[in-house]
Design a protein around this nucleic acid. Structure first.
Lengths: 218, 218
DNA sequence: ATTAATTTTTAGGTTTGTCTAAAAATTTGA
DNA sequence: TCAAATTTTTAGACAAACCTAAAAATTAAT
């Protein structure tokens, strides 16, 4: 059996490994993301290694084993499916759902997950544009770019965000930037790399470079 | 804060108090229902009493305080709302939902509970006919009788069950006895108090007294 | 009304997941 | 390259929720 806490570690290791481009995750990195101390992380890593859920060489950081990856993907699948439910069915905003999904992701019932998936119409992406792994752990793929890397006059579609903080998401709401909206780049400032964009062919909106770096488009 | 485990104790105390007609719940009773030993229950009762969630006089059993009752009702509300969701929206059978709802009832978000309630159309009763308390803890009332106490030739409506075991519920399914169906009592056996009933004015079905005692009708 | 049986509580331990402080290993940089 | 800084691990403790065994209180029965 895998406890609530163990599942959280595996999920975080998975996500940080992705962010690191596949290389080992360090103890300190994990301590930050689990809101605990490095000593506690060391304890847990020893335990997860004993259960063969992670590859652990002391002082060298960790990666997930096949089995650890499988559990992590199942937790991520549940998290993202519940986020779709919260937004599509219950009417939550995309800035309100993270903490609730953090709880729901640990509900243990394969039948529930699969019925929920079907009820939601087998969505491929969650309300932030993150891919939802299927029951076998396969991620739908989608090539995307940061808005900050797109050239003037191009027209693209908003497909995701790389930051999920309520403050960032609310900022996008305030500027009518939503998943699926069309974006034409009207102007990029030489000075601060900020963007002036045309939203849905109608509205002109100002986007700082800080924001543009965290918007994924296609 | 109230832990998962504490919430479970409060919920079970609430239900056993109801069953006992309002009188104190004993340590042994709680041990049975929490699947733990009496010694563990004693520990927890001391703790819950310290938090003013129960009235506890050593050796005399316990009742809930106002605050304890409030938490218990909130857990029961969530349990029953999620059961409605599982059956009405996801297509689970009424015999499959208990264990999943036992997990979902501890998800901590008032906004979620209220949006779920609205999404489900503010249901008053769950798929077993149990009343769903409102956000303030008020139970909808419904007078009902055991089928075993109804006289020959009467026609009634099935409104609930007093046992939730999968075996019992599956037995009802097999005999087409569902919530809301109409039941006319054709015959009651002198010998074993078993019933022959007419379901929905069409089908004749045999019902043992053991089953009739656990069917609520109106 | 005592003794016997039952129930409940206390005492002392275990496991899980956390902590602080200190020791050990690794990395940095002069 | 080797000493200083940083990171990681170990050691020893703690709280929550459970356990077993034994003591204390209550209830039942002769």
């Amino acid at each position: 059996m895998t406890s609530f806490t163990e599942e959280n570690y595996l999920k975080i290791i998975y996500m940080l490994t992705e962010q690191n481009g596949g290389s080992e995750v360090s103890t300190n990195e994990l301590a930050e993301h689990t809101q605990t101390k490095a000593a506690s992380v060391s304890d847990m890593l020893r335990k997860l290694a004993e259960k063969n859920l992670i590859n652990y060489r002391k002082y060298q950081g960790v990666t997930l084993t096949k089995e650890g990856q499988h559990i992590a993907l199942s937790v991520i699948r549940k998290h993202r499916l519940w986020e779709v439910f919260l937004v599509e069915k219950l009417g939550f905003g995309w800035d309100e759902i993270h903490d609730i999904a953090e709880q729901l992701e640990h509900i243990d019932s394969k039948e529930l997950t699969e019925k929920l998936d079907k009820f939601l119409g087998n969505p491929q992406f969650d309300p932030h544009g993150d891919p939802i792994p299927d029951a076998k752990g396969k991620m739908p793929s989608m090539s995307s770019h940061k808005l900050s890397e797109i050239a003037v006059d191009q027209t693209v579609v908003m497909v995701g965000v790389t930051v999920h903080s309520p403050a960032f998401l609310q900022h996008l709401d305030k500027n009518n930037i939503t998943l699926g909206c069309s974006i034409r780049i009207q102007e990029v400032s030489e000075f601060d790399k900020s963007f002036t964009i045309i939203l849905n062919n109608t509205q002109s909106v100002f986007v700082s470079n800080e924001v543009a770096k965290n918007l994924l488009v296609k």
